[in-house]
Design a protein around this nucleic acid. Structure first.
Length: 566
RNA sequence: GCGCCCGUAGCUCAGCCGGAUAGAGCACCGGUUUCCUAAACCGGGGGUCGCAGGUUCAAGUCCUGCCGGGCGCGCCA
């Protein structure tokens, strides 16, 4: 789109008092009005003329000097329409040249952006709640990669806390079961729940758990630590299975425990800034001077032990020293807004100028119809089960609609997982979501499978064209006038990526790709590609090719596969 | 009680830095397959943009108050 916007801006700037970068071009409400629009309201004051008069004069002045772009005044707007042959030739040339890299740019200049995502707790199953952080974070990473940043995805595993004392004690007491190797997370969860229950009757269990955690904290490399290490390894193994299905990988997987040895120096560092104080026996940083009503940050409990915030501070300092990041994004739910507000406030009080680089990329909470999710109350939906059911549903549909499809099992996995992932990325990330099976398992309308299906149909045309050796003629691009909607959507992709990156907002990409698919499907049902006059078939095939590439690019950014058949 | 976020069609959501008659999907009703995958497409009904003020040439979009919902609020993570 820039190849058309830039000359328009230049020309408008020459005929108004406005600098080029201040000229905002919009998309007209009605596509019939034009491809781009310039509203003339702002000029009314300085020129002391009515906007429609200005629009008419500007259209007249600018119209002549723009090659291949018509300018027409409609009321207070100057509307621009790119000549259809030029539009087609230009968009097709660009996408064809860039191919798989369509939309990439060097905006980021290789600057480092750290992304903290997923971060599940070990010994607990991943629920659909963890899905959000994982898929949003991974999509944000791919968007930023495309914009030329150097990104680092960090999985900050929750592997520390007093609950692991219980778990170790439970293994001690009831020993291993076969399940521990076959389905470790369920086994660990069962142990944890049992310990929790029996603890209520027998106080010695609580004491035993405390002793175990103390030993773990002491750093002694004994049987307690060995068990804890085993729990960690088993859990990570299970998580990796899910990550593989989601196509997510990390540059760094590091548990909270890694930062245990750095806690004292972290506290000392904050103390050295002269901002700590002791309140009710605990070591705190008062934050009321940063913002009224914000509670203090607790660094040490009255018994001297550290807290979540202390470990997060340690991890953050470590990250800064290791990477000197341009941005450090925490893809963590809305329930932790205060926590990150406090972390940043501590940095601010320490006078660290890189504080603004730390951002909490928060997302809305996922609720079940019966209320907030709770592992202890058994109100959870396991992610693995969601992915399995979606895959099974996809397979059932394939068997019904395309029974001879080769590789059906693999494609069912791609489509099922795609449905789940897309569903999580399609709304603005800050919106709360109520989990409903019907919605997650829906494959029609604004869904991942709809986008994949659109792509597969285009791929089918390309496959048949190749088999029939069609499309070799010189394409008549002027014949693609009726595909302007598709071409304009494709042309907006680079701008969509830039905006999505700036906002850390994958839903801008889902919205774009859905709009593109709507245009494509509308066009598809009205036009036949193969077997037309050679110049027409060639032009339509070129269009189909770039549309398929653009949709595949969108799917790839979002983390969905783009099967060529389904 | 205090703080933060959300509130657009029956449901789920778009709506670009305030700009031209508020757009999709689902659901409902009607239509489209001798034709490149009907997981699609086309048409129809359905909206006081939570409510009340304010700023502006112009407000779904900005400001204030209220109502409804969500989340959070010192020794959990």
């Amino acid at each position: 789109m820039e190849q058309f916007e830039n000359p328009i801006r230049r020309s408008l700037a020459a005929h108004t008092s406005l600098p080029e970068e201040q000229i905002r071009l919009e998309v007209p409400r009605d596509a019939a009005l034009g491809d781009l629009a310039f509203p003339c309201f702002t000029l009314a004051k300085t020129l002391r003329k009515a906007p429609p008069v200005i629009a008419a004069e500007l259209a007249e002045a600018v119209g002549g000097e723009l090659e291949g772009i018509a300018a027409a005044a409609t009321g207070p707007y100057v509307n621009f329409t790119v000549e259809r042959g030029l539009l087609a030739r230009s968009v097709i040339a660009k996408v064809t040249a860039e191919g798989e890299r369509y939309g990439h740019c060097e905006l980021g200049g290789g600057e480092t952006i750290v992304i903290d995502l997923s971060s599940p707790n070990i010994a607990k199953p991943m629920s659909v709640g963890h899905l959000r952080s994982t898929v949003i974070g991974a999509a944000v990473q791919r968007i930023l990669d495309a914009l030329g940043y150097r990104t680092l995805a960090i999985n900050h595993i929750g592997d520390w806390g007093s609950q692991f004392g219980k778990l170790v004690a439970a293994i001690d007491r009831w020993g291993d079961s076969v399940e521990m190797e076959t389905d470790p997370i369920r086994a660990l969860l069962a142990l944890y729940v049992r310990y929790h229950e029996e603890e209520a009757e027998d106080p010695s269990l609580a004491e035993e758990a405390r002793r175990c955690f103390q030993e773990l904290e002491s750093g002694i490399d004994g049987p307690v630590r060995a068990r804890w290490k085993r729990i960690t390894a088993l859990s990570l193994g299970e998580f990796d299975k899910i990550y593989a299905r989601l196509g997510v990988s990390f540059q760094l997987v590091r548990g909270e425990a890694y930062f245990e040895p750095m806690l004292d120096e972290t506290v000392e560092r904050i103390e050295a800034a002269g901002i700590t104080e002791v309140s009710e026996g605990a070591l705190i940083v008062d934050l009321s001077e940063i913002a009224e009503g914000i509670p203090p940050c607790l660094l040490r409990k009255s018994d001297g032990t550290t807290l979540y915030a202390t470990r997060d501070m340690a991890a953050l300092f470590h990250r800064w020293e290791e990477y000197t990041f341009q941005r450090c994004l925490y893809v963590v739910g809305a329930d932790q807004k205060l926590h990150f507000r406090q972390l940043k406030a501590v940095l601010e009080r320490m006078g660290l100028d890189w504080e603004p680089r730390v951002e909490h990329v928060w997302f809305g909470m996922l609720r079940l119809p019966e209320g907030k999710m709770s592992t202890r109350k058994g109100r959870v939906v396991f992610l693995e089960e969601v992915l399995d059911r979606a895959r099974d549903e996809a397979l059932a549909i394939i068997e019904e609609k395309n029974p001879d499809l080769p590789g059906a099992a693999e494609i069912a996995e791609q489509v099922g997982v795609g449905a789940v992932v897309f569903n999580d990325l399609k709304r603005e990330r800050i919106k709360d979501i109520e989990f409903e099976w019907d919605e997650v398992l829906s494959f029609e309308g604004e869904t991942g499978p709809y986008v994949q299906y659109t792509h597969a149909r285009l791929a089918s045309i390309l496959r048949r064209a190749e088999a029939a050796d069609e499309g070799g003629a010189n394409p008549d691009f002027s014949a693609l006038a009726d595909a302007a909607g598709v071409l304009l959507r494709i042309a907006r992709f680079p701008a969509v990526l830039r905006s999505a990156g700036a906002h850390a907002e994958p839903s801008e990409v889902t919205t774009w790709v859905l709009g593109l698919c709507r245009e494509v499907n509308g066009w598809y049902t009205q036009h036949r590609v193969l077997g037309q006059e050679p110049a027409l078939t060639a032009a339509r095939l070129a269009l189909v090719g770039v549309a398929a590439t653009a949709i595949a690019r969108g799917l790839a950014i979002l983390g969905l596969a783009a099967p060529r058949e389904m």
